[in-house]
């Protein structure tokens, strides 16, 4: 097998006295969909933040695309082709749908956004003022692409192109966030609970969309609580509890793993896997 796109080794993060992530390891290959599951407080989102540069690890390494990126800034990781969404949804509320998605193309603008820090910034300002044809053409091309991306979500967002994001429904905001991430043309797409707050129909729709992305060959790292969806979409699943991995493997294997069942349901088996007598016995003082 070729070198993995994302490779995490021994990642650690402590907050005060609590270790939120205790030595996480994972490998993700091109075109793969890997899900991270686990109960509340298991450390999934912290792990996401550490990978995407929104938080700095206390130990361990992250390699992305063959480059060591441990402790890099989110903007550098975005430039390298890593896009993510956030647990509670973070769209630019006062920007239109179109501008939100255009923000996703930021790191891909070549002509309008020349390189080095100081002089490049001044040139960027100058170019924005005079708007030479090349810069205009680039912007036009990106704008066309925005509509292509939004077509993925059927007629959910296209009719609302020029509406501000704050006027969208919650589900549409989540879709918009994914569209913005896709606009980066990411090598790795990280989705943090993309169906949170969605009803059954919307969840099914999102499942189809993620399935389409996967079919296109998009590499995806997914955190999701709706385990039906995880089981259907994932190539592999990692289960975390209390900051550490407790099981890993195919969806079916992880789902039946005793450690996973225990993490979700409690440290005594539940749901018909135990005789009624035993439950009654445990219930008596």
């Amino acid at each position: 097998m070729t070198q993995p796109l994302l490779s995490v080794r021994g990642l650690q993060r402590r907050f005060g006295g609590i270790t939120a992530v205790k030595g996480a390891n994972l490998d993700l290959c091109e075109g793969e969909l890997l899900s991270v599951i686990g109960p509340n407080g298991a450390g999934k989102t912290t792990l996401f933040n550490l990978i995407s540069g929104h938080d700095r690890p206390d130990g361990g390494t992250v390699r992305f695309g063959g480059v060591e990126v441990t402790g890099s800034t989110p903007e550098r990781l975005a430039a390298l082709g890593l896009a993510r969404t956030f647990q509670h949804g973070r769209v630019f509320a006062n920007l239109t749908v179109r501008d939100n998605v255009l923000m996703g193309t930021h790191s891909r603008m070549k002509l309008a956004r020349p390189g080095p820090p100081l002089l490049g910034a001044l040139r960027e300002l100058f170019l924005a003022l005079i708007r030479p044809p090349g810069v205009r053409a680039e912007e036009q091309a990106l704008r066309r692409e925005v509509e292509d991306i939004l077509h993925l979500f059927g007629d959910r967002l296209i009719p609302r192109l020029d509406r501000p994001a704050y006027s969208l429904s919650y589900a549409n905001r989540r879709r918009l966030e994914i569209a913005r991430a896709l606009a980066l043309r990411p090598r790795l797409l990280m989705l943090d609970e993309p169906t949170a707050g969605m009803n059954e129909t919307e969840t099914a729709e999102m499942r189809t969309i993620i399935g389409q992305l996967k079919a296109r060959g998009q590499t995806i790292l997914l955190i999701e609580h709706k385990l039906d969806l995880v089981m259907q979409l994932s190539d592999r699943v990692i289960a975390m509890d209390d900051g550490a991995e407790i099981a890993a493997g195919t969806p079916a294997a992880v789902r039946h793993d005793p450690a996973v069942v225990e993490a979700y349901l409690g440290h005594r088996h539940m749901g018909g896997e135990q005789t009624p007598d035993a439950v009654a016995l445990e219930a008596s003082p």
Partner: peptide, 30 residues
């Protein structure tokens, strides 16, 4: 004129949510 370009968009994005702006590759200092 500036506000009509990607600069205006980027400034507003930083205002609305600087964490998400960084995730889009925006260098806040710049």
């Amino acid at each position: 004129r500036l506000l009509g370009t990607h600069l205006g968009r980027t400034f507003r994005a930083i205002r609305d949510d600087d964490v998400a702006a960084r995730a889009c590759g925006v260098s806040l200092d710049r």
